[in-house]
Simulated assay, not measured.
Amino acid sequence: MKLILLTFALLITEVLYCATPDMSDTIEKDFRNAFPKAEQVKWYKTDLMYEVVFINDQVSCRMRFLLNGTIDRTIRYYTEEHLPPFILSKIKRKFAGKKVYGVTEDTSEDGVTYYIVLEDEDHWLHIQSDAIGNTIITNQYKKNRNVK
């Protein structure tokens, strides 16, 4: 009798396990629905999260999902033309004479932060901006023109 109960319990456990959808399938399906034109899609999984790296509308993107399927963070890498006009105009005014070299946009529950690299002929300037254009300088480097 114990053997029959044990076998029945194992069978029920296996059926329930197989009937539970794999969260990675759900996340991938939701991703494909949200980004049908995504290119060069690559998925990664760790013990803590799923991550997808892809190109969307010529912008490099990275999305991180918790194992339960909740989006944790998105990171986008782009150039000046994708920066919101409000932010760009504030930066151009405050840092006149500097050109936007690249932007890293980091979005999480804490909000949106822009990490922007500016340059002129002699310097690299790393700044950080919030969603309303408040900026701080995080690093400044002198370009070495003697490197061959």
Results as ranks from 00 to 15, higher is better:
Asn33Ser: 10
Ala131Gly: 07
His82Asp: 14
Ala9Arg: 01
Cys18Lys: 15
Ile4Ser: 10
Tyr44Thr: 10
Arg76Asn: 12
Tyr115Trp: 10
Tyr50Phe: 02
Tyr114Cys: 00
Pro21Cys: 04
Val59Met: 08
Gly69Ala: 06
Leu66Ile: 07
Ile116Gln: 05
Tyr77Asn: 06
Thr107Cys: 03
Val112His: 05
Gln128Ile: 07
Ile116Thr: 04
Leu66Gly: 13
Trp43Lys: 02
Met1Gly: 09
Leu6Glu: 09
Leu66Met: 13
Ile136Tyr: 09
Glu121His: 11
Pro85Phe: 10
Leu83Asn: 04
Arg145Glu: 15
Gly111Lys: 02
Ile136Gln: 14
Lys94Cys: 08
Arg73Trp: 09
Gln128Leu: 08
Leu3Glu: 15
Ile55Cys: 09
Leu88Pro: 03
Asp25Glu: 14
Lys142Ser: 07
Glu119Ser: 08
Ala34Glu: 14
Thr26His: 13
Ile137Cys: 03
Val100His: 01
His82Met: 10
Phe95Asp: 05
Lys142Gly: 03
Ile4Lys: 09
Glu39Pro: 00
Tyr141Phe: 12
Thr104Met: 10
Asp57Trp: 11
Lys94Gln: 15
Leu88Thr: 05
Ser108Leu: 00
Arg93Gly: 07
Val41Pro: 02
Phe35Pro: 01
Val59Phe: 07
Ile27Tyr: 05
Phe35His: 06
Thr70Asp: 15
Met23Asp: 12
Asp110His: 11
Ile132Pro: 01
Pro21His: 04
Gln58Lys: 13
Asp30Tyr: 03
Gln40Thr: 08
Pro84Lys: 01
Arg145Ser: 15
Asp22Gly: 11
Gln140Pro: 04
Lys42Met: 04
Ile132Leu: 07
Glu80Thr: 06
Arg64Phe: 15
Leu66Cys: 10
Ile87Gly: 01
Ile71Pro: 07
Gln140Val: 05
Val59Cys: 07
Glu51Gln: 14
Tyr114Arg: 01
Pro21Asn: 08
Asn139Phe: 01
Ala19Cys: 13
Ile91Lys: 00
Thr74Met: 13
Val53Cys: 08
Leu16Lys: 08
Leu6Ala: 11
Lys92Trp: 11
Ile55Glu: 12
Thr26Met: 15
Glu39Thr: 01
Gln58Ile: 09
Lys42Ser: 07
Tyr44His: 14
Ile127Gly: 02
Lys29Ala: 06
Thr104Pro: 03
Leu67Ser: 11
Lys98Asp: 12
Tyr44Cys: 06
Pro84Ser: 00
Ala38Asp: 10
Tyr115Pro: 06
Gln58Asp: 15
Gly111Asn: 05
Ala38Pro: 03
Pro36Ser: 03
Met63Lys: 09
Arg64Asp: 11
Ala9Asp: 10
Met49Leu: 13
Pro84Leu: 00
Phe54Trp: 07
Tyr44Met: 11
Ile127Pro: 02
Leu125Val: 03
Glu14His: 14
Tyr17Pro: 09
Arg32Phe: 11
Lys98Cys: 04
Pro85Asp: 15
Asn146Phe: 14
Glu105Pro: 03
Phe65Pro: 12
Glu119Gly: 06
Phe8Thr: 13
Thr104Ala: 06
Tyr141Ser: 06
Val117Asp: 14
Ser129Thr: 02
Val100Ala: 00
Ala131Ile: 04
Lys37Met: 06
Pro21Gln: 09
Tyr50Cys: 02
Glu121Pro: 05
Val147His: 07
Leu48Gly: 11
Asp120Gly: 03
Asp106Phe: 01
Thr79Cys: 11
Lys29Glu: 13
Glu28Asn: 12
Ile91Trp: 05
Lys99Asp: 13
Val52Pro: 01
Val103Arg: 00
